[in-house]
Simulated scan of single mutants.
Amino acid sequence: MPPEILRYAAFTSTPEGGNPAGVVLDAAALDDADMQRIAAEVGYAETAFVTESAVDEDPRRSRLRYFSPISEVPFCGHATIATAVALAARDGEGAFDFETPVGAITIETSRIGGQLTAAFTSVEPEVVDIDGDVLDSLLALLGATRSDLHPELPPRISFAGNRHPVLVFSSRRLFDSFVFDPAAMRSLMDTQGWAGTVTTLRVVGDAEFEARNLFPVGVITEDPATGSAAASVGGYLRALGRPPGRVVIHQGAHVGRPSLLTIDIPAAGGIVVNGSAVEIA
């Protein structure tokens, strides 16, 4: 019997918003080829597979793997949120522990005003400079130059589960209007080992950003909501000296699926990414 494939929209309160993810809660019998085929058939940016339930006989501890339509990815934030909400709907709210390819993730689920929400704590972020030639190549693909970047928020590579280049634009006009060749962007991302997204931001307020996350896979070019990128943004901001606190990220308006992500930046340790998810009929 084929496994049941659930479909959830993460970081939204409506099925029409957020980032859709496939969720397979019983993937123990699937091999790599099966999971890759299902992810391609589902067609979402990622599908999460619970490859082992009750790890060490703990009913709330699972092993997860993530596949895009073209390859396995180390971690996916929105599919993690979706999986946790699906498990909470089945098994009740509370904490779940996920063993993922990038390490153990604890995720808390709760119900707020009838809406199931989840919050995961990322692995410890790492933030490094981006090579100048690579930066220029990336900006050229977007029709931009270094002078278009925010002077107080320099470009970096940030890792909090996936490796994301982070670019903050000064101009809303450029942020809203840039376009890119998906094949050329995918080639650069593969060459650099960027398994996540290219994360572009603009400042909305002191603790508020708008994001566009570029993710050319299959027919997809831009991600509506990216949990791993949100965690990486939190690590990026902390590395630049931002004090602990909450930051709000709006994403998805440019692809017609508005999303809301909140991140809590502690003084040390992983970044907490919060969001809700709803099942897509």
Results as ranks from 00 to 15, higher is better:
Leu135Val: 12
Leu135Ala: 01
Leu135Asp: 05
Asp136Pro: 15
Ser137Pro: 13
Ser137Met: 07
Leu138Ser: 03
Leu138Pro: 10
Leu138Gly: 04
Leu139Val: 10
Ala140Val: 12
Leu141Ser: 03
Leu141Asn: 01
Leu141Gln: 07
Leu141Lys: 02
Leu141Met: 05
Leu142Ile: 01
Leu142Gly: 00
Leu142Tyr: 03
Gly143Lys: 04
Gly143Glu: 01
Ala144Cys: 07
Ala144Asn: 02
Thr145Ile: 05
Thr145Tyr: 00
Thr145Val: 09
Thr145His: 10
Thr145Asp: 00
Thr145Pro: 12
Arg146Met: 06
Ser147His: 13
Ser147Pro: 04
Ser147Cys: 13
Ser147Tyr: 08
Asp148Val: 11
Asp148Glu: 08
Leu149His: 04
Leu149Asn: 08
Leu149Val: 09
Leu149Trp: 05
His150Asp: 09
His150Ala: 15
His150Phe: 06
His150Gln: 04
His150Val: 12
Pro151Phe: 02
Pro151Gly: 07
Pro151Cys: 06
Pro151Asn: 08
Glu152Lys: 15
Glu152Leu: 15
Glu152Gln: 15
Leu153Gln: 09
Leu153Thr: 06
Leu153Val: 10
Pro154Ala: 13
Pro154Gly: 12
Pro155Val: 12
Pro155Tyr: 06
Arg156Cys: 03
Arg156Trp: 01
Arg156Phe: 01
Ile157Leu: 15
Ile157Ala: 11
Ile157Cys: 14
Ile157Asp: 11
Ile157Tyr: 14
Ser158Trp: 10
Ser158Glu: 06
Ser158Asn: 05
Ser158Met: 09
Phe159Asn: 05
Phe159Cys: 03
Phe159Asp: 05
Phe159Ser: 07
Ala160Glu: 00
Ala160Cys: 13
Gly161Pro: 14
Gly161Lys: 14
Gly161Asp: 04
Gly161Thr: 03
Gly161Gln: 00
Arg163Trp: 11
His164Lys: 08
His164Asn: 10
Pro165Arg: 09
Pro165Asp: 00
Pro165Thr: 02
Pro165His: 01
Pro165Ile: 00
Pro165Trp: 03
Val166Ile: 14
Val166Phe: 06
Leu167Pro: 02
Leu167Gly: 07
Val168Arg: 02
Val168Ala: 12
Phe169Asp: 00
Ser170Lys: 11
Arg172Met: 06
Arg172Trp: 08
Arg172Val: 05
Arg173Trp: 12
Arg173Pro: 13
Arg173Cys: 09
Arg173Ser: 14
Arg173His: 14
Arg173Thr: 14
Leu174Ala: 02
Leu174Ile: 10
Leu174Gln: 01
Phe175Tyr: 02
Asp176Tyr: 09
Asp176Ile: 09
Ser177Met: 12
Ser177Cys: 11
Ser177Asn: 10
Ser177Ala: 15
Phe178Val: 10
Phe178Thr: 04
Val179Trp: 14
Val179Gly: 15
Phe180Ile: 05
Phe180Asp: 07
Phe180Gln: 09
Phe180Gly: 11
Phe180Ala: 08
Asp181His: 11
Pro182Glu: 01
Pro182Cys: 02
Pro182Thr: 04
Ala183Leu: 13
Ala184Asp: 08
Ala184Phe: 07
Met185Gln: 03
Met185Lys: 07
Met185Asp: 06
Arg186Ser: 15
Arg186Phe: 13
Arg186Trp: 14
Ser187Trp: 00
